[in-house]
Amino acid sequence: MNSLAEPRKWERVFWPVLASIAFLALWHFCVIWSHTKVFPSPLAVEKGMLELARKGLLLRYIADSLRRVALGFGAAAVLGIPVGLTLGWYPAANQVVNPVLQMLRPISPLAWIPVAIVFFGVGDTTAVFLIFLSAFFPIVVACVSGVSNVPSVYRRAGRNFGLNPAQLLARVVFPAALPQIIIGLRIALGIAWLVVVAAEMIAVDSGLGYLVIDARNSGKRYDLVVAAMLLIGVIGLALDLCFRRLRNIRSVRWGFRNEW
């Protein structure tokens, strides 16, 4: 295949499927050849998953993890977008807040665990709070840079047509910054999905993260550990694919070049 040629439709499905099968086969034979007693084979993982499904835990855990991400990420978006737009709109305010923001941003959400437990106890709220923290900063930063990168010709054109500041923000600055905001939301969702696993390991007793740690602690069920890992990977990919579809909305399509 040459890199310029558009892959044919069946090829776009065929090759990734083939690669996945090859990966499973490699995994399977590595387990057999190494005679490992700890690491499960793909078939053992599949059996584990079926066992979870039979007990009704599989869907419940997935739903719990997704619910926590939806709450934490949703709160981060609802709060982060207005905060980011405001800071981008008033550079003076941004100069005041930015140092604090930049200092809080590199702190891993996991470092907040003890503080979060003091505030919210061991439970759902703590997990949601950690996810919120992890998603909030990337969203704010994307909105600030989205707004400050709006070309001045657009603002000028908006002012020229007699828009007041609120209209200018709603009708020019926000749509002009929207592609960058969507990119920020996508990155934030990826981080939120990473953090939910960690949060569930310490704060709650359900969800995919809890499944990982619980399967290991209660009877070294590595088939379930790996099953949880695979589920986390597949669901993360699915979330990302859903988000990527947003760029096909025609009013933001202009802001994306080919791949992102």
Binding site: P151, V153, Y154, R156, A157, N160, F161, V172, P175, A176, L178, S251, V252, W254, G255
Partner: peptide, 13 residues
């Protein structure tokens, strides 16, 4: 009204 080169049209509309 000020007309920029074609850079002033809004790409989201």
């Amino acid at each position: 009204i000020f007309v920029f080169q074609e850079r002033g049209v809004f790409p989201w509309l």
